[in-house]
Amino acid sequence: MFSIGPARKDHQAAIRVAAGLFIPLITLVVLGRLDLAIFASFGAFAGIYGRNEPHRARIVAQVRAGLLMLAVILAATLTARLSPGDLVSPWTIVVGTTVVAWACTVIVGYWRLRPAGSLFHIFAYAAIASVPHQPPLGAAMLTAVATVALCLLIGLSSRVHPGHRTPLTWAGVRAAWRVRLGADERRALWLESLGYLVAAAVAGVVATIVGQSLGFGHNYWAMVAAVVPLVGHTTRHRVARGLQRILGTMVGLVVLAAIVALTPQAWAMVLLIAACQFGAEMLIARQYFLAQVCVTPLALMSTLLVVRVDPLDLLHDRFIDTVIGAVVGVAVVTAPSAWRRWIHWRSRSEQLDW
């Protein structure tokens, strides 16, 4: 909680990712098409992958990540369009997002993509499916595809500098494209995907029930927070991520409240979104708490850019949903070890009784 990992040229990846988000968003501001901003925002997630990889591995990772994100975006917007009145019920969001959480975790694992898991895909599917009055499908998907293509170009742009250039040949790309998992890796992946399915489903159900009782929405924020603790090498690390998610969100909400109080124009919000994205990428692999301080205003400003809602409602919903999701995620992470301890305690008790 109070330490920060060493830097690994994080500024290079942060600049690439921030540019891949800023350029499409500022273009949409100029064109007056902020209704398409959410599709650009999630298309830009393709640039997050392969951050420290050589160019042949980076292009493969970003192509795969981009194709998967485009599939999720398409599924999300079709879910909204096929719903009565373009209004998706909270329970449909829970079911659809749970399926996405499980399926994308499996695909990401088989492709060995990093970051692992399906956090971005959960967020993308649920956020887009929740948007009322969807823009034309062609324009939405064109925006997403163009943003992914831009991120691929930005990912290769460092080859212009001879000192940053790494080998990029067709044979090298083909070699990087071939991924094989061993039997133990496949078994671990399927167990991990089950954890994502359970965490997302339980968090979504709890957040929906509590939200309907207390009068708040955005149940998918709880589902996003629930899968955060599932990434980590040890149970202790995973529990720490859950706690850092809650505390980082609290501080991030204070930052967002200060930003909202200034009532920035759309172009200023885009600048702030890009700055938050840069900060998140600088810190995400080094200090998760500080990264969340950047991620929270980034996510909520992206929402305010597209949907006109009361910012106070967003602050309220974000905090409660994050707490619900983080608690569920920590419970899912600690359940196996708690079960093993209980079995061990029971066997010892039986031996003593005997």
Rank of each mutant, 00 (worst) to 15 (best):
G232K: 10
I93W: 08
L243Q: 00
V60C: 02
R180I: 00
Q292S: 14
L272A: 02
I93H: 08
V29C: 12
R286A: 10
L153P: 02
C276S: 02
L150I: 08
D35V: 04
W190C: 04
V254D: 02
R178G: 01
R174M: 14
L78K: 09
Q12S: 12
L70P: 07
I122P: 04
P264T: 12
A19E: 02
R112H: 15
R245E: 01
G211C: 05
P167D: 13
Q292V: 03
V323S: 07
R180D: 03
Y110I: 09
H233Q: 06
A275W: 12
L34D: 05
S302A: 14
T303M: 13
A257D: 06
V239N: 05
Q351H: 09
D310I: 00
L305A: 00
A40D: 07
R178Q: 11
G47Y: 06
L78W: 10
D35N: 15
M282K: 05
R341F: 03
V323G: 11
W267P: 03
G20L: 13
V108E: 00
D317G: 05
P311L: 08
M1I: 08
L36W: 10
G66S: 12
R180K: 05
R159M: 15
Q12F: 14
V306T: 09
A299P: 03
S158Y: 13
V333R: 10
Q12W: 14
V198G: 01
A61D: 12
A126S: 15
H218K: 13
D35P: 07
G47W: 02
L113G: 11
A18Q: 10
